[in-house]
Amino acid sequence: MRILDPHIHMTSRTTDDYERMAAAGVRAVVEPAFWLGQPRTNPGSFTDYFDSLVGWEPFRASQFGIRHHATIALNPKEANDPRCREVLGLLPRYLEKDGVVAVGEVGYDSMTPEEDEVFAAQLALAIEHELPALVHTPHRDKARGTRRSLAVVAESGIDPGRVVLDHLNEVTVGLVRDTGCWLGFSIYPDTKMSPPRMVRILQQYGLERMLVNSAADWGRSDPLLTRATADAMLEAGFTEDDVDRVMWRNPVEFYGQSGRLDVSAVAETGATFAGNSIQRGGS
């Protein structure tokens, strides 16, 4: 089984997690830039974080044969802090990196005018840098936030096929199904979605444009819930090809639109990491 977790905050995870993920079939990850437990108060905190997403984390992942990519953005919560607004001007440098496969997470947290402005500005950046966009739907007032996000996406002029609305659930999936946007679901131990509920959504709405992620971060979460969902799909009668489509081919197709997703080596071998050339210097 091969899995691309299209949304996981590895910065918050231990190296042991990478090892367990590799053993469970995770061959590639996309790590979106987002808020941390502690709010940041200056642009330098963001650039150090972005540097980690295009530097340290890909290295850490590579030690376990996992390909690491990132999405870069000013997240909606911190978009409300005027001290962090300067980050918008620093994004173009990062949006040109090889490992950056989308603009994100953008979207809404509390649906403020500041969030409106920063969301729209970053969809424009996605168009300019020819990148897809990852839209976080808010945890509070989610249905209205999802509708409003769809309106902003439509107004921006970005191709809906290059946008994913994430953290959807039974209430919001129907709002997005016919918009042409991709649909993301985060599987969590307690909140968001669970594997059995995810399977029911796949049974009802089909596999097209469906993305399943663990969104594991600094909260109570589990980086192996992509694998648990894949197993639940098989138990429910989905085929191995169905699982491969949802867990690998769909996210490869979505982020592949960036022209920068590089999963060639892992896609070909599908095997665990054998070499240690990086550990030994790689030069």
């Binding site: 290295f59 550990q279 790689g282 030069s283």
Partner: peptide, 9 residues
């Protein structure tokens, strides 16, 4: 850094 590729370079 802790990245051997950079230390080597």
């Amino acid at each position: 850094t802790n990245d051997p590729r950079l230390v080597a370079a």
